[in-house]
Design a protein around this nucleic acid. Structure first.
Length: 438
RNA sequence: UCCUCAGUAGCUCAAUGGCAGAGCAUCCGGCUGUUAACCGGAGGGUUGUAGGUUCGAGUCCUACCUGAGGAGCCA
């Protein structure tokens, strides 16, 4: 009977077939200990020379790392096995034996990141990397379930766009039949249009930033999930962001505890994530940062009016053990489409969610400008091409309503939930400055 | 774009300006309970590239290349 390592406990005492790869092989004279992996887990096989035909013993003895094999054996519970079970091998079929003249490059010993990134197509086979990719899949599933269950409609924005969404970041240019086009940096403007059609919508897809950012938080190609809600205010989406993050973390703790433990995540820190999240106005944040400078905790004195820098975000988030929501930044440092605060028009009705433990901004969002006149004024102030935004301005001509939304970077969320050093491990094939291979 | 650091065997790293080394991987041999197994042996090098200083450069100097971390910008 063909089964998987993950389900092998259901077959104790029976002979089963596993389709997988050789992870490692230890020998002790007439005794062999091959470890097989099949994507669902790993199990150690035991081959005793006297107990099997010579051909089977020799076949296992000659296996090299990552050779593909179909193994037949009897499942036996064993206290010494990390997974609780071992496989008494009775037969093995070698599909492809990795030649020793060109052995599998990733050995069970340590490697540097440059080498591992060059071999990313093989690195994903490592138990830790496989666990991280399962976490990514779980987080995406949880995020989509969250919106699907709340009546949101998935609407996919285009990836090829005629102009910048925000006009701030650098875009990847694309030759579109001799016309200048760009890879999208956000689906937001387009889902504002579908929100006016469907009420509550979200998008999930890749986004591209050609910024020459060289940090552990940046990729040039990353995935964003963005909800947009008609008739919603900043308050509404702050509550939405709060319950969204809580639901994702809760799902990971319920479904993927073993993967989180395998990755080495401190589960107690995740268990604390539940509403309400601390909320800081930009003004309050500035006061905190200035006090921190006075105490010597921050090198530079932060002045009101600027955008929060990376060290500022790290400091603020370190003061809390939950994600912190910073709202109402000065409009001057934010995007052109954000609605001004009616009480203080110099502020934008916007929101950044900073993850705990120094992972920085994982969510950015805002209430969007509903007024046609103000929007066109802002487009001019930001020196954006008005023609390219005709369709976007139409949304304010034909039944404009207050609306709001946010975007969450999947990779930063995965890095935080898994407790990783770098976002490059959170996506199967990261695209970064100076790295396009494999 | 700027700042800092690094580049030596397939991999991870040593080597005061004075003979190019170790562990792992690979190959050969040993071992009936190994857990990154262990023990013995073998093969494996244009020290990132190009110049320079020196009797002598992996080591010092200059430029360049490649990569990493950070800043700015952002999710």
């Amino acid at each position: 009977m063909v089964t998987t390592v993950g389900e092998i406990g259901q077959h104790e005492g029976r002979t089963v077939t596993i389709c997988g790869w050789l992870y490692n092989l230890r020998t002790s004279g007439k005794l062999l200990f091959p470890i097989f992996r099949d994507g669902s887990g790993m199990i150690q096989g035991v081959v005793l020379k006297n107990a099997v035909p010579a051909a089977v013993f020799d076949a296992v003895k000659g296996l090299t790392q990552e050779s593909s094999v179909i193994v037949e054996g009897k499942v036996r519970a064993d206290k010494r096995a990390p997974g609780g079970y071992e496989l008494d091998v009775s037969n093995v079929q070698v599909l492809q034996r990795v030649p020793e003249t060109d052995p599998y490059p990733i050995t069970p010993k340590e490697h540097g990141t440059d080498f591992l990134m060059d071999h990313r197509h093989l690195w994903v086979r490592s138990p830790r990397q496989a666990a991280i990719l399962r976490m990514r899949a779980e987080i995406i599933r949880a995020a989509r379930d969250f919106f699907d269950q709340r009546g949101f409609t998935l609407t996919d924005p285009p990836i090829l766009t005629p102009a910048a969404c925000e006009g701030t970041t650098t875009l990847f240019p694309v030759n579109y039949f001799d016309e200048q086009a760009y890879l999208t940096q956000s689906g937001q403007l387009y889902i504002e249009a579908t929100a006016m059609a469907l009420g509550k919508v979200y998008s999930f897809g890749p986004t591209f930033r050609a910024e020459k950012s060289k940090t552990r938080r940046h990729l040039t190609e990353f995935w964003m999930i963005e909800p947009e809600v008609a008739y919603a205010t900043l308050e509404d989406i702050m509550e939405l962001a709060e319950s969204f993050i809580t639901a994702i973390v809760k799902r990971c703790l319920e479904h993927r505890c073993s993967d989180l433990e395998m990755i080495g995540r401190d589960l107690a820190k995740l268990a604390r994530i539940e509403p309400p999240f601390p909320r800081l106005s930009y003004d309050q944040a500035v006061t905190m940062l200035q006090q921190a400078h006075a105490k010597g905790a921050l090198e530079h004195r932060f002045e009101w009016g600027g955008d929060l820098g990376s060290p500022d975000e790290t400091y603020l988030s370190s003061q809390f053990d939950k994600p912190v929501m910073v709202h109402r930044y000065p409009a001057a440092v934010k995007a052109f489409y954000m609605e001004p605060d009616p009480a203080r028009p110099e502020l934008a009705l916007c929101l950044d969610v900073l993850a705990p433990e120094g992972y920085g901004e994982i969510i950015g969002g805002s209430q969007r400008t509903a007024s046609y006149d103000l929007l066109i004024q802002r487009i001019h102030e930001h020196r954006l091409p008005e023609e390219a935004f005709r369709w976007y301005l139409d949304l304010r001509k034909y039944g404009s309503v207050p609306h709001a939304g946010f975007g969450m970077g999947i990779e930063r969320a995965v890095a935080w939930i898994c407790g990783l050093e770098h976002v490059r491990e959170t996506i199967p094939f990261p695209r970064m400055l100076y790295r396009l291979y494999p």
